[in-house]
C-alpha cells in the first residue's frame, strides 16, 4: 500500500467513526426526546416549531459540531507542540498556552466582546495574543543551549499556566461577575452550542491552523531528529518552527475562545494515535483532527449524560482521562532515561 493510500484509508475509517459518533450523539441528551422523534426531525417530517426540532437541530447538532471541531483542533495543536518541542508531553494546557489564551478571552470579554461573527474574530485575536505570549514565555524560560529539557519545559508550562490563571482570577474579582456570564463553567472547559456564523469562523480558523501544521508535517518528521540534523537534511528549521507555533497557538486560541480551555485532549489523542499508527506526522495531523473530534464528542456526551439532568464540564472528563496518561508517559520516559 502506498503511503497516500494508507493515509486515505485511515482518514476514511476515522471519518466514518466520527460520523457515526456524531449521529449517535444526536440521540443523547437531557431533554426528553424519543429516538423516534429524533429520526423524524432528521427525516424532516417534524413541524419546524416542534420542541424536538429545536432540541436536535439548534441545541444538539451545533454542540456536536463544536465538540468535534474543538477536539480536532486541540489534538492537532498537541501534535504540533509535541513535534516542535520534541516532547510527547507537550500540549496546550500542559504548556500553559491554553491559560494564556483564556486570559486573552477574559480580557476580550471585559471589552464587551461576545459571539457575533466580528466579535468572535476579535475574541480569538485576544486569545491568540494570550497564547502567543504564554508560549513565548515558556520557550524563553525553558530553552537552554542544549535545547528544551523535558522537565524544565513542563515546569515552565506549569508556572506560566499558574501565572495566567491567577491573572484571570484577578480580572474576575475586580469585575462585576454578571459581565462574565458563566465564566467558571467556561474556565473548566465546556462545549456549548454556538450560532452558525461564529461556528463558521471557528471552522475556518481550525482549517487554517491545521493547514499550517499539516503543510509542515514532513519537515516536522525530520525535526524530530534534532535541529542540527534537520538543517543538515535541508530543512529550514526556523521557518518550520515559526509556522507550526503560529498554527498550534491559533488552534488553541480558537478552541479557548469558542469552547474554553479543555485540558489534555492534545496529550491523549496524539499519544493513542501514535501507538496505533506510528510517529509519522503526515498521518498524525489528519488522524488527530478526526480522532480528537471523536474523543471530545464522546467525552462531551458522557459529560452531559453522567449526572443528567445536570451537566459536567467536558474538561472535567478529559482531565480525568488525561492525568493517568500524563503520568504513564512521564514514567515511561523516565524509565528509559530520556527524560
Amino acid at each position: 500500500m502506498t503511503p497516500g493510500a494508507r493515509l486515505a484509508a485511515i482518514v476514511g475509517a476515522l471519518g466514518l467513526v466520527l460520523g457515526l459518533a456524531g449521529t449517535a450523539a444526536l440521540f443523547v441528551g437531557s431533554a426528553a426526546v424519543t429516538p423516534a422523534s429524533v429520526l423524524a426531525v432528521l427525516a424532516g417530517s417534524e413541524r419546524a416549531e416542534a420542541v424536538a426540532v429545536v432540541v436536535v437541530l439548534d441545541l444538539r447538532l451545533p454542540r456536536i459540531i463544536v465538540a468535534a471541531l474543538a477536539g480536532g483542533a486541540l489534538a492537532v495543536a498537541g501534535v504540533g507542540f509535541q513535534a516542535l518541542t520534541r516532547n510527547p508531553l507537550a500540549e496546550p494546557s500542559v504548556l500553559g498556552v491554553a491559560s494564556g489564551a483564556a486570559f486573552g478571552v477574559v480580557t476580550g470579554q471585559l471589552f464587551g466582546l461576545g459571539l457575533s461573527v466580528l466579535e468572535a474574530i476579535g475574541l480569538t485575536a485576544f486569545a491568540f495574543a494570550g497564547a502567543f505570549v504564554a508560549g513565548g514565555a515558556v520557550y524563553l524560560i525553558a530553552s537552554t543551549a542544549a535545547g528544551l529539557p523535558v522537565h524544565t519545559l513542563l515546569l515552565a508550562g506549569v508556572i506560566v499556566g499558574i501565572f495566567f490563571s491567577s491573572a484571570i482570577t484577578v480580572l474576575i474579582s475586580i469585575v462585576d461577575t454578571n459581565r462574565l456570564g458563566g465564566v467558571i463553567h467556561w474556565l473548566l472547559g465546556s462545549v456549548a452550542p454556538i450560532p452558525p456564523g461564529p461556528l463558521l469562523v471557528f471552522a475556518a480558523l481550525t482549517a487554517i491552523g491545521v493547514a499550517l501544521i499539516g503543510s509542515q508535517a514532513r519537515r516536522l518528521n525530520l525535526l524530530a531528529l534534532g535541529e542540527e540534523a534537520a538543517l543538515q537534511l535541508g530543512v529550514d528549521a526556523e521557518a518550520v518552527k515559526r509556522r507550526v507555533f503560529v498554527g498550534a497557538a491559533l488552534l488553541t486560541a480558537a478552541v479557548v475562545a469558542f469552547a474554553g480551555p479543555i485540558g489534555f485532549v492534545g496529550l491523549i489523542v496524539p499519544h493513542a494515535l501514535r501507538m496505533l499508527l506510528g510517529p509519522d506526522n503526515r498521518v498524525l495531523v489528519l488522524a488527530a483532527l478526526l480522532g480528537g473530534g471523536v474523543f471530545l464528542l464522546a467525552a462531551d456526551t458522557v459529560a452531559r449524560s453522567l449526572v443528567a439532568p445536570a451537566e459536567l464540564s467536558v474538561g472535567v472528563i478529559t482531565s480525568f482521562c488525561g492525568a493517568p496518561v500524563f503520568v504513564a508517559l512521564l514514567r515511561s520516559r523516565g524509565a528509559r532515561g530520556q527524560a
Binding site: T2, P3, G4, L7, R86, N87, P88, A217, R218, R219, N221, L222, A224, L225, G226, A229, L233, G234, V235, R274, G278, P279, D280, R282, Q338
Partner: peptide, 28 residues
C-alpha cells in the same frame, strides 16, 4: 547517533534522506 524520542522505523529514517531532493513533496 540519532535521538530516539519518537519511534521511527529504520526505513522511515532512511527515507528522510530523500527530503532535499523534493522538499515540496508531501510523500516520497
Amino acid at each position: 547517533d540519532v535521538p530516539r524520542g519518537f519511534p521511527y522505523t529504520a526505513g522511515e529514517l532512511v527515507l528522510m534522506g530523500r527530503f532535499p531532493h523534493a522538499p515540496g513533496r508531501f510523500f516520497e
